[in-house]
Simulated scan of single mutants.
Amino acid sequence: MRNVYLIDQFEAVQNEIHFILNEKKQLSQLQSTGQVIVDSDNEAFLYIIEENDAYSYISFSHVVWPQLLQMLMSGQQPYLKVEDGTMPLAQFVDELKGLLYNIEGNSNYGDHFVEAVEKAFADFFRE
């Protein structure tokens, strides 16, 4: 079973947004993959990371969607903050944008999830 780490805290640092991982993890244990997928059942976007030769997920639930929108609208660079530093979330912005465009109006993701995404990211879709 893969580990799923929930992001529920963040901090803005200049032109960056640091999503805080509250687990005891070291940078040396983690590596970006540049891939984002959807967990429509739990209404979350999952960033895939390599963790000690296995894959784990960083889960961005609807709790932090306002910050994801802010990141997209302002051009902030996303980072994962762990115990001993920060790691850039490679390709996160491009992957998230692609998913958002694919989800809009697409009932394959489930009507409830699509409605939640369209509402939370309405400003993004208007741009």
Results as ranks from 00 to 15, higher is better:
M1C: 05
M1D: 12
R2F: 13
R2E: 15
N3D: 15
Y5C: 06
L6M: 10
L6A: 09
I7C: 02
D8N: 14
D8V: 07
F10M: 11
F10Q: 14
Q14P: 08
Q14L: 11
N15S: 15
E16Q: 15
I17A: 11
I17G: 00
I17R: 04
H18E: 11
H18S: 10
I20M: 02
I20Q: 07
I20P: 02
L21Q: 07
L21Y: 00
N22M: 14
K24G: 04
Q26I: 15
L27A: 14
L27S: 13
L30D: 11
L30S: 12
Q31P: 03
S32T: 14
G34V: 07
V36A: 07
V36F: 05
V36E: 10
V36W: 11
I37Y: 02
V38A: 03
V38N: 03
D39A: 05
S40C: 08
S40F: 08
S40N: 14
N42K: 03
E43K: 15
F45R: 06
I48K: 02
E50N: 12
E50H: 09
E51K: 13
N52H: 06
D53G: 05
D53P: 08
A54C: 09
S56W: 02
S56E: 10
Y57K: 04
Y57S: 04
I58H: 00
S59F: 01
S59P: 01
S61Q: 10
H62D: 14
V63A: 06
V63I: 09
W65G: 03
L69G: 01
L69Y: 07
L69I: 04
M71C: 07
M71Q: 09
M71W: 03
M71G: 01
L72N: 05
L72H: 01
M73H: 05
M73W: 04
M73A: 09
S74L: 04
G75C: 10
G75D: 06
G75T: 07
G75L: 13
Q76A: 12
Q77S: 11
P78R: 13
Y79L: 12
L80Q: 05
L80C: 00
E83K: 02
E83R: 11
D84L: 08
T86G: 01
P88D: 05
L89V: 09
L89H: 01
A90S: 15
F92S: 06
V93Y: 07
D94T: 11
L96S: 11
K97H: 10
G98A: 06
L100S: 01
L100P: 01
N102M: 11
E104L: 14
E104Q: 11
G105D: 13
N106W: 02
N106E: 08
N106R: 13
S107F: 13
Y109L: 06
Y109P: 06
G110Y: 02
G110W: 06
D111C: 02
D111W: 03
F113V: 10
F113Q: 05
F113R: 06
A116C: 06
A116E: 09
V117W: 12
V117L: 12
E118T: 09
E118C: 08
F121D: 06
F121E: 09
A122G: 13
A122P: 02
A122T: 06
D123Q: 14
F124S: 04
F124P: 00
F124D: 13
F125S: 14
F125N: 13
F125V: 15
F125R: 10
F125Y: 14
